[in-house]
Nucleic acid binder design. Structure first.
Length: 300
DNA sequence: CCCCAGGCACCTC
DNA sequence: GAGGTGCATGGG
């Protein structure tokens, strides 16, 4: 087993692991302390876990915790580059904030969760997670991905225990609709199965990369169960389109209340207006702070 | 019993 | 393109 750490003093704007992982961006990490994912309790266990794919194609487990100004990890691989990429540690938060509007709401959200970063999840896991997210609460989306891993993912031994990698497109495409419904996916079961089949057959979400933002969003809606909102989530949380603003029920309510001039009829028009309002380059970063802040407004 | 959750597919017009 | 409807499941 390898061990290592990343010095967070060298990370521009700082870092907050818990806010980053519990803000509804990624459903591909888990913690082993038995705490409910959504309860935002303190770390009771030995940290957060994720899996990644090695050069050999085999999965590897990484365990991470934030302590004393560093990210400490254990793994069977060198986890530094993986963590740096997936937690976007090279983003300069100070520079991003400087490009954001300085209204009271945005300032309060930044102050409340300063150090929270966007994630950069693997495209397939991000795509399936957000297909599952339709009309579903954050804690249950996470539970669904946990179920998918344990039911269909490749087992991998780490530190004396067996974990499961997130399923590959082939593994999920081979599941029956009834298998998926048995995991409480509900009407999302056929969406997940059909989209996994499309990816296994060679239609990849990564093909959106390099396209202009709106064309990239359009290209992701080819997948079954993916509309504008889910497409925006994948662009923002996996494909590094930091201007993408997923228009979910929370953000729509926020727009009506705080930015009423941005409330248009169509998704596309509202999207353009709110991106202009929040800053064309990093609107998605601002949106993620607002989403997390307003969802926990009663705790501040 | 109700309403709601990080919506979407499918059907009309 | 805009406007309805049905859809699974669990929590408050």
């Amino acid at each position: 087993m390898e061990r290592g750490q990343l010095d967070l003093a060298a990370v521009a704007g700082g870092f907050d692991l818990q806010s980053t992982l519990e803000s509804g961006q990624s459903y591909l990490w888990w913690r082993e302390d038995g705490a409910d994912y959504a309860d935002r309790g303190p770390y009771g266990g030995d940290g957060w876990y994720l899996t990644t794919t090695r050069a050999t194609g085999e999965p590897a487990v990484i365990r991470v915790r934030q302590r004393d100004g560093a990210l400490e990890w254990e793994s069977m691989i060198d986890a530094n580059p993986v963590l740096r990429r997936r937690l976007r540690l090279d983003d300069d938060l100070d520079a991003i904030r400087a490009e954001s509007p300085a209204d009271d709401l945005v300032e309060a959200a930044y102050d409340a969760y300063w150090g929270m970063r966007l994630v950069c999840d693997p495209p397939f896991g991000s795509l399936i997670s957000f297909i599952c997210s339709a009309q579903m609460r954050v804690s249950r989306i996470h539970a669904m991905q946990q179920s998918l891993r344990e039911a269909f993912g490749t087992p991998v031994e780490f530190d004396g225990r067996t974990y499961h990698a997130y399923p590959t497109p082939e593994q999920l495409a081979a599941a029956s609709e009834d298998d998926l419904r048995a995991l409480s996916l509900g009407y999302r079961a056929p969406y997940v199965r059909r989209t996994a089949g499309m990816v296994a057959d060679g239609t990849r979400p990564e093909e959106a990369r390099g396209k202009p933002y709106e064309a990239a969003r359009e290209s992701l809606t080819r997948f079954v169960g993916v509309g504008d909102k889910v497409a925006d989530c994948v662009l923002l949380f996996s494909l590094s389109y930091l201007q993408a603003v997923p228009l979910d029920t929370w953000i729509r309510k926020t727009i009506t209340e705080y930015y009423p001039d941005c409330a248009c009829d169509s998704y596309a028009e509202t999207s353009r207006a709110i991106r202009a309002q929040l800053g064309d380059q990093y609107a998605g970063y601002v949106q993620t702070y607002l989403f997390h802040y307003l969802r926990h407004a009663d705790e501040i």
